[in-house]
Design a protein around this nucleic acid. Sequence first.
DNA 1: GAGAAGATCTCCT
DNA 2: GGAGATCTTCTCA
Length: 194
Amino acid sequence: MEESRIRREFFRRDSCLVARDLLGKVLCRSRGETTSKGKIVETEAYYGPGDPASHASSGKTSRSAIMWGQPGIAYVYFVYGNHFLFNVVTEERGEAGAVLLRALEPVEGVEEMRQLRGFRNLQSLTDGPGKLCEALGITKQQNGLDLVNSDTVWVQKPPESPTASIRASPRIGVSLGQELEYRFYLAGNPYLSR
DNA sequence: GAGAAGATCTCCT
DNA sequence: GGAGATCTTCTCA
């Protein structure tokens, strides 16, 4: 296992802290021969029953139960009949929480991403939560995957620490909880969503 | 078992 | 800028 891989302790913390600290980290996706990597430039934090916009807001269901599970595992789900969204479970086991990855900056395996995305221009490959899943070939099959141990999807530390400043804002695309600044992004990065 | 809503994207005007 | 696509999940009867 790579030395730079992020360990479970990193995820076993407050969702907002994890969301903020994930910025600049590198999401890696290995598919057979090729490995695609992207720097995380935008995230959103989701909490448990106290968070009106979270899937966990109405208690544990068959879908959201994974948010109460082990920190560091993937929570992938399908929305709007078209898109997968990729989350990482956070907080202590027994506490609901997750961080949604909203946008990446392609670092490695760009050709692979372009194939999966239908040869679009570089900037539109991964500048949205549904797009980055498509670019990395992430589907419901990756739901429940342990990012700490998996050799197909994991997160690692970047070669150098990010220099761009981190900003917070209300979450995007949710109808409830808009007053909460749970979205974090690297200011000025061209690969942000919207 | 049926109906409704949804953490989005793309195309068309 | 706006609306349709399209399907999973949840709620309620």
